[in-house]
Lab assay of single mutants.
Amino acid sequence: MTFKLIINGKTLKGETTTEAVDAATAEKVFKQYFNDNGIDGEWTYDDATKTFTITE
């Protein structure tokens, strides 16, 4: 399955996707992406659209 990440950061904005077997696996991938890029904020997940959103 394809999961999308929408980034609404102070310095970084955009979208990316990842292929994962489930939302929990995608969450781990995206959290690592947050850490690697110094993004910290509030994030949500919409199961209907398989979209994670992080807002700094």
Score class of each variant (00 low, 15 high):
residue 1 M to A: 09
residue 1 M to W: 12
residue 2 T to I: 14
residue 2 T to S: 08
residue 2 T to L: 12
residue 3 F to T: 01
residue 3 F to D: 01
residue 4 K to Q: 04
residue 4 K to P: 01
residue 4 K to G: 03
residue 5 L to M: 06
residue 5 L to S: 01
residue 6 I to S: 03
residue 6 I to Q: 04
residue 6 I to R: 05
residue 6 I to N: 03
residue 6 I to W: 04
residue 6 I to F: 04
residue 7 I to M: 08
residue 8 N to P: 03
residue 8 N to T: 07
residue 9 G to Y: 15
residue 9 G to M: 15
residue 9 G to T: 15
residue 9 G to A: 06
residue 10 K to E: 10
residue 10 K to V: 15
residue 10 K to R: 10
residue 10 K to A: 12
residue 11 T to N: 14
residue 12 L to E: 09
residue 12 L to M: 11
residue 13 K to W: 13
residue 14 G to K: 15
residue 14 G to P: 05
residue 14 G to M: 13
residue 15 E to L: 03
residue 16 T to L: 15
residue 16 T to R: 15
residue 16 T to A: 14
residue 16 T to S: 08
residue 17 T to Y: 14
residue 18 T to K: 03
residue 19 E to H: 14
residue 19 E to C: 11
residue 19 E to W: 15
residue 20 A to M: 02
residue 20 A to D: 02
residue 21 V to W: 11
residue 21 V to Q: 11
residue 21 V to P: 14
residue 21 V to A: 12
residue 21 V to N: 13
residue 21 V to H: 11
residue 22 D to P: 01
residue 22 D to Q: 01
residue 23 A to W: 11
residue 23 A to S: 09
residue 23 A to R: 09
residue 23 A to K: 13
residue 23 A to D: 03
residue 24 A to C: 09
residue 24 A to L: 10
residue 25 T to V: 06
residue 25 T to H: 14
residue 25 T to D: 10
residue 26 A to P: 00
residue 26 A to M: 02
residue 26 A to Y: 01
residue 27 E to S: 05
residue 28 K to M: 11
residue 28 K to L: 12
residue 28 K to A: 12
residue 29 V to M: 08
residue 29 V to P: 00
residue 29 V to Y: 12
residue 29 V to N: 07
residue 29 V to F: 14
residue 30 F to V: 03
residue 30 F to Y: 02
residue 31 K to L: 10
residue 31 K to E: 03
residue 31 K to M: 11
residue 33 Y to W: 13
residue 34 F to H: 04
residue 35 N to R: 13
residue 35 N to L: 15
residue 35 N to H: 14
residue 35 N to W: 12
residue 35 N to C: 09
residue 35 N to V: 14
residue 35 N to S: 13
residue 36 D to L: 08
residue 36 D to V: 10
residue 37 N to V: 14
residue 37 N to K: 15
residue 37 N to H: 13
residue 38 G to K: 12
residue 39 I to N: 05
residue 39 I to H: 04
residue 40 D to A: 12
residue 40 D to Y: 13
residue 40 D to C: 11
residue 41 G to K: 04
residue 41 G to P: 03
residue 41 G to H: 10
residue 41 G to T: 05
residue 42 E to H: 11
residue 42 E to C: 07
residue 43 W to R: 00
residue 43 W to H: 01
residue 43 W to S: 01
residue 44 T to M: 09
residue 45 Y to C: 01
residue 45 Y to K: 00
residue 45 Y to I: 00
residue 45 Y to V: 00
residue 45 Y to H: 00
residue 46 D to A: 02
residue 46 D to H: 05
residue 46 D to R: 02
residue 47 D to G: 07
residue 48 A to E: 12
residue 48 A to W: 08
residue 48 A to D: 12
residue 49 T to L: 06
residue 49 T to C: 03
residue 49 T to W: 03
residue 49 T to A: 06
residue 49 T to F: 04
residue 50 K to H: 13
residue 50 K to Y: 09
residue 50 K to G: 03
residue 51 T to V: 05
residue 52 F to P: 00
residue 52 F to C: 02
residue 53 T to M: 06
residue 53 T to A: 04
residue 53 T to I: 07
residue 53 T to R: 04
residue 54 I to K: 02
residue 54 I to F: 15
residue 54 I to M: 13
residue 55 T to H: 07
residue 55 T to Q: 07
residue 55 T to V: 11
residue 55 T to N: 09
residue 55 T to L: 06
residue 56 E to F: 09
residue 56 E to S: 05
residue 56 E to N: 04
residue 56 E to D: 06
